[in-house]
Design a protein around this nucleic acid. Structure first.
Lengths: 346, 346
DNA sequence: TGAGTGGGTGTTATCGCTAACATCCGAAGT
DNA sequence: ACTTCGGATGTTAGCGATAACACCCACTCA
């Protein structure tokens, strides 16, 4: 199995070349190699080229552990996220990894089963042990958010999806605006009011969407029907939908995400209520499949890539400048109009 | 902003405590601290306790960079995966992160935009620079798989979703068996044959499912209709479905994944062909929403958590034992029967 | 009683890098 | 011609851990 057998190169354990090997080959000191590597200005062009040639010849690659040891920082960013395949969090994570890679950072993911204080702290500590340059916490619930208080000052942290009221570097999508737009869209179509099936109560996204929905109704002088609480699953949407389908006065439903909307669509279909002729439905997220629901779902799109970019930006600002107090960025969502909304039958 | 101002603790840059600090406090040498940390046997119980107390008192946490430098290995596992939010890859990744965390490993994710040779190599090299203990490559396509050849011997690698024909440590779901079961299920319901809408041609999962489908038809002596090629998206499924819906002889369709199936469901609905009365449909993956499609989708479930566990297992075996040649594990998928299959109308 | 044994501990070297200081040198200033 | 200066380079000292070896001491055994 091992290539060491009969090695023509080196009968020793032929370790990876180190900086001194490069230095020897280039006829300079290892410090000069270090300078070339770190783009220090005071290196003669000719020397620089010689060193680069030696690096290429040996296939030298700097040892990041050694560098991290001496500098106390690695080119690693830690992300703490819930271990879920929910569309939102998963997209966010993927987008963040891409943005980080672009900036030359690796991403170490600390998934957490539950978003409770203890788990989050453990994940954060693990990252600190790795001497990450900064930490991004995806903290969409109140307990997750509270755990942030325990992170010592001096560790660059950015919260994503956290409590909009919290005075820390934070990036969020303007849930309220999205929900407002969705609700208004239904109202504008002629519906007297709009019912809302919400996400889990302890998520900031949920409450933001509830607030936006309520505000839109109030602004329009429409009656505010009781909230239908659920979680993020299609199953919960289906249950809520079965109830709503029985109520003839329900003509418009705003679901807190697309999967809930899918469940509602199914429930309406089962009860013979046509969408959008009898009932209009709007979702949230714009999952890639939403366009192919029956009928195509009108929904609110969140730009996760933008969130990721902003988060990285805020984080790096802290890493470089030391501190950046209470910066926060908000990304505006966009209403995507498709076939699940129509004027009420009445 | 900084807490250093007026710090009552230490007017120096109060760095984190190191091993020597613990040693001093406990009245032992740093080496003894190291021994306690690594559970060496030859430490007196009383000393062990004293050291542990000192560790707790100082809040000491070992510096992983230093350890990685001297041992040449970190407690990091690198994962190379395509940057996608496709259900399969995303679930796999999440499951792997969970499994790794359980085993005390952090996971550094190197997402890659394209699954081509160059990108994968770059990601692998980045991981090697970090001195990862091992690398997991999610290589579901041929080019991705080819890139594996360039990884030097000695680096523990496990491939997931790779070429079943490749003689390396590999974990896959038995796509062929899953497709066979799905097709047979339709045949058993009384359909004379089954049409197949496949995934992108260069994915191993695609070809495995095509083979399983074809084999089931041949074993049953059924006619093999032409393959309908697509990709993994609902949009492609919708297009394929529009075509199939026009053909009255089509009574059963096996879609290569659930999103394709969703698109097919929509297309059938649009053309007035009822599912399952007129046309039966089976998917693959069992995404959480599949149960709430219209109608509930019969599909094939893949156990990603099991795949992740096996992959980690194979990887750690290599890390510990040095080499483990051509081990491979296969996970069996399971048919989940729901409401989208019925006997043909005929 | 002297040599051998092995558990418990300390000392020293080392991993590969960067920071800080030291040194050399030629160009410029007076 | 003699400092002065600063660019280019080398030397040395760590960063914080583990590995290898040395050492001490209480036993056991012949």
């Amino acid at each position: 199995m091992s290539r060491d057998e009969g090695a023509a190169v080196d009968n020793k354990t032929s370790r990876d070349p180190a900086m001194t090997d490069v230095a020897r080959l280039a006829g300079v000191s290892h410090q000069t190699v270090s300078r070339v590597l770190n783009d220090h200005p005071n290196v003669r062009e000719q020397t620089r080229l010689r060193v680069r040639a030696a690096i290429a010849e040996l296939g030298y690659r700097p040892n990041k552990a050694a560098r991290a040891l001496v500098t106390g920082r690695s080119q690693l960013i830690g992300v703490v996220a819930q271990n879920s395949t929910l569309y939102g969090p998963a997209s966010l994570l993927a987008a963040f990894e891409e943005a980080a890679a672009l900036a030359g950072f690796a991403v170490s993911v600390g998934r957490v089963k539950e978003l409770d204080h203890a788990s989050i702290n453990k994940a954060v500590e693990r990252h600190r042990d790795e001497r990450v340059a900064g930490i991004v916490v995806i903290a969409p619930t109140a307990p997750a958010n509270d755990a942030l208080a325990d992170i010592p000052a001096g560790v660059p942290v950015v919260t994503v999806d956290g409590d909009p009221a919290r005075p820390t570097p934070l990036v969020t999508v303007d849930q309220q605006a999205g929900a407002y737009a969705a609700t208004k869209h239904l109202l504008d179509a002629g519906h007297r009011t709009v019912w809302h099936v919400s996400g889990p109560p302890n998520w900031f996204d949920s409450s933001g969407r509830v607030e936006g929905w309520r505000k839109a109704l109030e602004d329009a002088g429409a009656e505010v029907p009781p909230l239908v609480p659920a979680d993020w699953s299609a199953r919960a949407g289906h249950q809520a939908g079965q109830m709503l389908a029985r109520m003839p006065e329900v003509t418009a439903v705003f679901a807190a995400n697309d999967h809930l909307a899918l469940g509602i669509l199914r429930a309406m279909h089962e009860r013979g209520r046509r969408v959008p002729e009898d009932v209009s439905v709007v979702g949230f997220d714009d999952v890639p499949e939403a366009e192919f629901f029956i009928p195509p779902l009108t929904t609110v799109r969140q730009d996760f890539a933008a969130v990721a970019r902003e988060a990285l930006d805020l984080l790096l600002a802290q890493v470089v400048d030391g501190a950046a107090a209470d910066t926060r960025r908000t990304i505006a969502p966009a209403l995507i109009s498709r076939g699940s909304v129509a004027p009420p039958a009445g």
